[in-house]
């Protein structure tokens, strides 16, 4: 999923300072799962913003709504009945959702309330870790199911570097050395001999080097 974290409260407060009617929009997808911008977080942020205004002896109108998927024009259309009645939109979706809303409702300022972090997986309750960089040319099939692009701090394709100690990355003990993990997994799979295959310099075009990515499926478009 795409992971996100709520922005510092003061940053959000500054965005909306000039406005008195806000449409606060959550998303039912990734940001709900990572507890950053789902229905629950929309309620909590709305409440926090109310408390902020009460502190200043003011009031603010906040319409809370959580869309099925904010990165999909079909669902973003559901905001149409409310948009004219508000001064600004605050989106709790990832950057994809924020931009879909901003692209559809051109006259309304749209502000992000979360920082989109990475594509990750859940490691347990309340813990998410980066697992994919969207490089566009997946190598997991030859690296034992562990991604060197996302999980090696230096994106090494022929690792590990000389900084590994006690199986951890040189950047710190909370990060596993991806190449140690790859090696262990290759051994488990009886694929040790694959380690010495040279991995050639990567073509970064599918991962963004060729400009903003776009997929067009002729059979669906």
């Amino acid at each position: 999923m795409i992971t996100a974290e709520q922005k510092p409260m003061q940053e959000i407060i500054q965005y909306i300072a000039p406005y008195s009617k806000i449409l606060l929009v959550g998303c039912n997808e990734c940001v709900t799962v990572c507890a950053a911008g789902g229905r629950k977080e929309v309620g909590l942020l709305a409440s926090a913003l109310h408390l902020n205004h009460l502190k200043q002896g003011k009031t603010i109108d906040i319409k809370e709504i959580t869309l099925e998927r904010q990165c999909d024009p079909e669902y973003v259309e559901e905001l149409a009945p409310y948009i004219d009645g508000v001064d600004a939109v605050v989106s709790m979706a990832c950057g994809c959702g924020v931009q879909t809303v901003a692209g559809r409702y051109k006259k309304s300022p749209v502000f992000p309330a979360v920082n989109t972090r990475f594509m990750g997986a859940s490691l347990g309750q309340g813990v998410w870790a980066e697992r994919c960089k969207g490089c566009g040319d997946c190598v997991l099939g030859i690296t034992g199911g562990i991604c060197p692009v996302a999980r090696c701090s230096k994106h090494l394709f022929n690792g590990p570097c000389g900084g590994t100690s006690n199986g951890q990355c040189e950047i710190g003990p909370e990060t596993d050395c991806a190449w140690r993990l790859i090696w262990e997994r290759l051994k488990e799979l009886g694929m040790e001999d694959r380690y010495e295959d040279l991995m050639n310099a990567k073509d970064w075009r599918p991962g963004g080097a060729a400009g903003p990515g776009k997929i067009i499926r002729e059979d669906l478009a």
Partner: peptide, 11 residues
């Protein structure tokens, strides 16, 4: 008890 319950009560 969720955070929202505490916040709403104060609000």
């Amino acid at each position: 008890v969720d955070a929202i319950h505490l916040m709403k009560a104060l609000e």
